[in-house]
């Protein structure tokens, strides 16, 4: 009897544990099923007939304000809204407030030099990138080089304290670079033109500006760093994200994006 009693106790204990586990599992399933899921922002956009866009209008040529929102990003978004068949309204925020504006539903989408951030991908959806603002290598045209490693033991010009300077300093030890410091990106390219440096690391926009006005330079196809700008929506808005993506792809395919790049970028 004592042994049977103990086995009976064990059976009861096991049953109690199973019931508890089943209860916890059921509660978890119930909470997932009943978790408040924010409606897709596309529903709101359709209902109000207007797309609410957050941007930082302090960063030309990408986004600015001169009586109205202007620059590459506002123009892209106006065209996107036109293709979606809705009106558009912009909201201005600083670089530290854009994601919050999206979080609280003040805006549906961000278009303000938003770099795709892998760490935020659980909370937001990023569109295809529409511009890469990272650092590039500018070399004399015809230079036989592929990337930064090609300049081992050679001189690289950078603006003192710039992002390019930081990248070059990190590469310095591995690639035995000799850094030539200047006080502006254009001066870094001057150094290359004068033969004082073999290449310059500058941001893509600065490089494009110089190449527009001066010949004899080339941007190496492999970027030194990548800063892809994209449109951002809340993760709970897959339909809006899909429609924005489709609009961007269509604008890429029919040359609209290229036209806007030529208008706003060097």
């Amino acid at each position: 009897m004592p042994r049977l009693k103990r086995e009976y106790d064990l059976l009861l204990l096991t049953a109690a544990l199973l019931v508890a586990a089943a209860g916890i599992f059921g509660w978890r399933v119930w909470s997932i099923a009943h978790k408040r899921v924010r409606p897709d922002a596309w529903t709101d956009v359709q209902a109000r007939g207007r797309l609410l866009v957050g941007t930082d209008p302090t960063f030309m040529p990408f986004s600015g304000y001169e009586g109205d929102y202007t620059g590459l990003e506002p123009e892209i978004m106006r065209e996107v809204a036109r293709r979606l068949g809705v009106e558009i309204q912009f909201f201005a925020h600083g670089g530290d407030g854009l994601y919050e504006a999206l979080d609280v539903g003040q805006v549906d989408v961000l278009a303000g030099q938003m770099v795709i951030d892998p760490q935020r991908m659980g909370l937001y959806r990023y569109s295809m990138p529409y511009y890469d603002a990272g650092q590039v290598l500018v070399v004399p045209a015809g230079t036989d080089a592929v990337d930064l490693a090609s300049f081992s033991d050679r001189r690289v010009a950078v603006e003192l304290g710039s992002e390019g300077d930081g990248v070059a300093r990190r590469a310095q030890a591995a690639d035995q670079l000799t850094l030539v410091h200047t006080d502006a990106p254009s001066a870094a390219l001057d150094a290359v033109a004068a033969g004082a440096a073999d290449a310059a690391i500058v941001d893509r926009l600065s490089a494009q500006e110089v190449l527009r006005e001066r010949s004899g330079f080339a941007i190496l196809p492999t970027p030194v760093t990548s800063e892809p700008y994209a449109l951002v929506t809340r993760f709970s808005s897959p339909e809006l994200a899909r429609r924005l993506q489709e609009a961007l792809r269509a604008m890429q395919a029919d040359g609209t994006l290229e036209t806007l790049y030529r208008k706003w970028l060097p």
């Binding site: 302090t58 600015g64 710039s162």
Partner: peptide
Amino acid sequence: RWIHGVRPA
């Protein structure tokens, strides 16, 4: 490039 930015130096 930021409207309120300056050069590093």
